[in-house]
Amino acid sequence: MLVVIAIVATIVFIFVNMLGDPAVLLLPPEASPEELAKARAAMGLDKSPWEQYKLFAVNVLHGDLGNSFVFREPAMKLIFERMPATLEIVILAMIIAALIAIPLGVYVGAHPNTFLSRSILSLSLLCISMPTFWFGIVLILVFSVQLGWLPSSGRGDVVVVWGMRLSFLTWDGLKHIILPAVTLAVQQLATQLRLTRAGMMEVLRQDYIKFAKAKGVSPHDVLYGHALKNALIPVITVYGLEFGGLVVFATITETIFAWPGMGKLLIDSINISDRPVIIAYLMLASMLFVVINFIVDILYTIVDPRIDLR
């Protein structure tokens, strides 16, 4: 795993260097030639590329990815401050999605030919085909502009728990969190539902299901006892992988709802060319994936008895 992180860091390093003069990258655009030269020297750009790489690596290990131009604070710190906000909507979205998708998926997989099943499936197709950002906007139009029930942007009141600022613990916070979380959940939900359905349909064709029936096991127990556990194995692992993707995907939702998370910071930074923050975000996001993949691999060995920790 550390190897992969190292590879990722190297790739980012190469990318940064590929884009031209890092001094230009990391300094505000109005810097004068003397300032640039000073910065280059300070960054050790007059040294050989190998030396530069070592410096970069050392800096990364110390978590030093430079200071934001705009906020004049360490980029990493800025991102970490906003992480709880992003995690809030992501986790809430995943919970909403799972609570709806899995039971429905089981039903649709077990009874694929009922009218209800077909309707659910059609609806899920619609949800997958729908652009998330558009759906968020529609939600705002309906619930904020027309009905005025829910706020259209921003985060609600926060409560500080263990140094983290969390907003879902307040009523005002919940009102603010609902629309973004639902927007994020919709596509997730549809994908999960289809996955569960596909898993169920495949599992139900297996011999051991027929054997369970031959043993006289009731249809309910065949479904929830025998089939479900087998069908959920791939679903759970995909779920884990989706988490990382959702954190990035939340960027869109955060933009629409002006939700102060990591993603919004990224977009804002892109628009004002606050490069250190951009780089910090990319590094962090990449690391997040590596870690998640690792955790999911371990999760797989726990859930499926056929797989060894080797």
């Binding site: 031959a214 006289g216 025998h226």
Partner: peptide, 26 residues
């Protein structure tokens, strides 16, 4: 339901392929 009480109880069945007849996760 009556058949469920008979299956595996008064009439049981042995399937052909032992590799796939048992549930792998239990």
């Amino acid at each position: 339901r009556e058949m469920e009480r008979i299956r595996g109880n008064k009439i049981s069945m042995i399937f052909q392929d032992p590799m796939t007849s048992l549930n792998p996760v239990y």
